[in-house]
Design a binder for these strands. Sequence first.
DNA 1: TCGACTAGCACCTTTGAATAGC
DNA 2: AGCTATTCAAAGGTGCTAGTCG
Length: 599
Amino acid sequence: ADCWDQRSSQSHTQKADVKMELENASLWKQFSSVGTEMIITKKGRRMFPGLRLNLSGLNPSLRYILLLDIIPADNSRYRFQGGGWQAVGGAEARLPDRVFIHPDSPATGAHWQSRTISFHYAKLTNNTLDTHGHIILHSLHRYQPRVHVIEARDVLRWGGGQHSFVFPETQFITVTAYQNNKITELKINANPFAKGFRENGMNIHGLLFLLPYRSDTSSFTSTYSGAQPSSYSSLPIPDCSDASNPQSTIPPAVYPSILSSSPTITSPISTTPLLQQTSFIFPTPPPSSSSSPQPLLPSTCSSPSADSYHGVTESVSQTTPSEATFAAVPADLLLSQPLQVEPVPAENHELSDQSSAVFAYPNIYLSNPAPATSHPLANSNQPAPSLSWSLPAHGGPTSFAFPSVPPHMQGLSFQNVTPNSSHPSLHLQNLSHQAPSSALAAAFPACSFTHPSSSLPHPPFQPSSHLTVTPSFQQSTTTLSQTVQHPQKPTNPSSTSSSYPPVDVGAIPQFGHGAPYRTERALHHSSLLSQLDPTLPSTLTSSTPPPALYSAFPSYPLRLCKEPHSSLTIPFRHLYRQHQHGPSHPQGSYLDVSTRGVF
DNA sequence: TCGACTAGCACCTTTGAATAGC
DNA sequence: AGCTATTCAAAGGTGCTAGTCG
């Protein structure tokens, strides 16, 4: 609450009102109660359940971009043993992070708020060489989807800030074949595409008692007001299609903004699994920042000094649209290290040859000055026209620009960045030599996606966030089903505390040099924040054994109060690929990023 | 030998073009 | 002529299964 109050008093924006609800939360909870598994295939597989969201609190006249990314929930690899998922080792090296851009993006707040937002077009793959832009994940790893709402003053000048939402019940473990028969049954009975596997075609009666039913539509809705299965209606065949229907006879759970909701998010039975950030606030590295990867956190880290950060929200409130250049800057781009525009391998003609006009942006990645890291595409045979610059020491004026934009975004305004902008931004200099013409999309063939983010240098993380866990979190986590066992439960006494005062992220072992987890209660603190950097040197996470087992996808309210400084990265590294299928882009777009999301 | 993964299969829904009716 | 509703086929999404791989 303190965080938000302070922030809102500075920015005078409407950010506090932005809310996102997971429309099919009940369905997700059904799966998470068993242990959600998501099939990943070489060609890409849709998620089921899909993310069906409702947004409110946006400015109806402003444009917003909605992004979906999926981050590792932890650093473990899993195996299904004894009817549950068990951590059996460390996670594999993190893959290139990709973001799925909602096909409607950018759209006005009125647009987003007038319909159900679905990310069902997003596909997951285990093909590390995927050229379709699908989100690449490791099999048998645990992941957490995130949704980001970014105000887009225009394509190149994202302003106003960002809201990020995490629904813990949407965590899943990736598999190439279902392990848990219960999951298979749920999928068959809930997914219309699997109807053929139902007994007698419509055989869902055995499971429908589990599934919420929206009487006036075929869509699921979040009726999870108190985790009472009895609250679910039953029976008509639940259609999990994404046909939106704003009306619901069963009001969905509304997840208020974390930053604004401390008084209202206190229901102990709330399933508010929301994590929201209200703006890009990122650390600005010192001028002499080392080019080599640095420890993310000191072991006793507390909130850094304000001098290290720039509150973008403040900048926005002080900047007119014509002046704003890039109010919201991905943290990964705000490095002292040069940024480079990655060459796009020409050998990949798949995308460029498609009549559907797939658009690829050149990779933009953070380059370690060290030669070993200056060539992000290990398999690229092409020399890279490296465009680089240095960022100012403390958020001084820099700027950032995309060399190209998808056609459906070209109608938006593009203004030159203002060198004297009062807020931090980045500028890709001389991009025109790589995108010399207005043929923006065609200028960039597909990216190879072979540059694992784990090999990238990372900004030194300076924790600024405070993680607040409500009592409901305790309750929910202590009453979790034990589908997943915990044979190696840590014994940190602090984890047994009966109260959960705001927790500085820096105090969470995973964010410091200590063990990644303390207890299962702290699991999700760190899980949701594990995105800090899975590529941490092993020494940072070796002091305490990682959790061997996890609870089964709990749902609980989660408050992440980023006060006074917070960082979130929606980095625009690598590639911005647009799958275009006409003006509406029904298939969505993918943005290749290194999602060092820092909560 | 075993776990993880892949490709092909049947079955189904979705989608969009073609057609018919008003 | 223009709009809407219907039909139909192609495309694509499912889980299952046998086979392959390490």
